[in-house]
Simulated assay, not measured.
Amino acid sequence: MKEQHDNKMEAQETQKKEELYSLAKKRMTDFIKTNYKEIERIDYTNDYEVNPMGGIEINGYLNGNVKKEIWGIYDKGNNKIISFTVDAIEKPECEDKICEY
């Protein structure tokens, strides 16, 4: 019975992480498309990491070019990307501040 309970708990935890990753990808996509020019496509890798504070680190690349890397940390509590690196050109109105997304 303990093994069944442990398996159930592990499955629930995995589902929560996958839901968080899905939300993080959506918010990162919104962030990038709002703040950067010439974004046609965003591809995410599956090597995400959930930190103990509840944020999730995501990685990917732009426009099918693996050299155009993106990286960010999504903070679920604030529903924002709190740290990021995007290999793209910022939109002029978003150069001095992060535009709302």
Results as ranks from 00 to 15, higher is better:
residue 67 K to D: 14
residue 53 M to S: 07
residue 55 G to D: 05
residue 60 G to T: 04
residue 81 I to S: 02
residue 57 E to F: 09
residue 53 M to D: 07
residue 50 V to N: 02
residue 60 G to S: 03
residue 99 C to Y: 08
residue 63 N to R: 07
residue 51 N to P: 00
residue 30 D to M: 09
residue 93 E to S: 11
residue 73 I to L: 12
residue 86 V to Y: 01
residue 77 G to W: 04
residue 54 G to N: 07
residue 54 G to S: 05
residue 78 N to V: 12
residue 37 K to M: 12
residue 69 E to C: 08
residue 98 I to W: 10
residue 8 K to L: 15
residue 16 K to T: 03
residue 76 K to H: 10
residue 72 G to V: 00
residue 16 K to A: 08
residue 35 N to E: 11
residue 79 N to F: 08
residue 42 I to A: 04
residue 34 T to G: 04
residue 7 N to H: 09
residue 45 T to D: 13
residue 1 M to E: 15
residue 63 N to E: 09
residue 15 Q to A: 13
residue 29 T to A: 09
residue 63 N to T: 07
residue 84 F to V: 01
residue 96 D to E: 14
residue 39 I to D: 04
residue 86 V to H: 03
residue 34 T to S: 13
residue 15 Q to P: 01
residue 39 I to W: 10
residue 75 D to W: 12
residue 8 K to A: 06
residue 45 T to Q: 08
residue 46 N to G: 10
residue 91 K to D: 11
residue 96 D to W: 05
residue 55 G to I: 01
residue 63 N to Q: 06
residue 72 G to F: 00
residue 101 Y to T: 03
residue 50 V to F: 00
residue 80 K to R: 15
residue 20 L to P: 03
residue 17 K to V: 09
residue 28 M to E: 02
residue 27 R to F: 02
residue 21 Y to M: 06
residue 65 N to A: 08
residue 9 M to Y: 12
residue 28 M to T: 00
residue 101 Y to P: 00
residue 64 G to W: 12
residue 77 G to E: 11
residue 40 E to D: 11
residue 81 I to R: 01
residue 5 H to E: 15
residue 90 E to I: 04
residue 95 E to V: 15
residue 31 F to S: 02
residue 68 K to Q: 07
residue 83 S to M: 09
residue 98 I to S: 08
residue 97 K to Y: 10
residue 37 K to E: 13
residue 78 N to F: 10
residue 29 T to K: 03
residue 87 D to G: 05
residue 13 E to N: 15
residue 29 T to P: 00
residue 57 E to T: 14
residue 16 K to W: 05
residue 75 D to M: 07
residue 101 Y to A: 02
residue 52 P to S: 10
residue 21 Y to P: 00
residue 7 N to A: 15
residue 66 V to R: 13
residue 16 K to Y: 04
residue 82 I to N: 06
residue 98 I to K: 13
residue 40 E to Q: 15
residue 18 E to A: 06
residue 44 Y to N: 11
residue 8 K to E: 09
residue 33 K to D: 02
residue 29 T to W: 06
residue 70 I to D: 00
residue 35 N to V: 12
residue 5 H to D: 14
residue 26 K to V: 09
residue 3 E to M: 15
residue 19 E to P: 04
residue 5 H to I: 11
residue 24 A to M: 07
residue 66 V to G: 05
residue 14 T to K: 09
residue 73 I to E: 03
residue 50 V to E: 05
residue 11 A to I: 02
residue 26 K to C: 05
residue 88 A to H: 07
residue 82 I to A: 06
residue 91 K to H: 06
residue 88 A to Y: 09
residue 22 S to F: 07
residue 44 Y to S: 09
residue 69 E to V: 12
residue 29 T to Y: 03
residue 69 E to A: 10
residue 55 G to F: 01
residue 27 R to Y: 01
residue 30 D to L: 06
residue 46 N to W: 12
residue 14 T to Q: 08
residue 52 P to L: 08
residue 97 K to E: 14
residue 21 Y to R: 11
residue 92 P to L: 08
residue 35 N to Q: 12
residue 65 N to L: 07
residue 3 E to K: 14
residue 97 K to V: 10
residue 80 K to E: 11
residue 6 D to P: 02
residue 46 N to A: 14
residue 56 I to F: 03
residue 94 C to L: 10
residue 46 N to T: 13
residue 67 K to C: 05
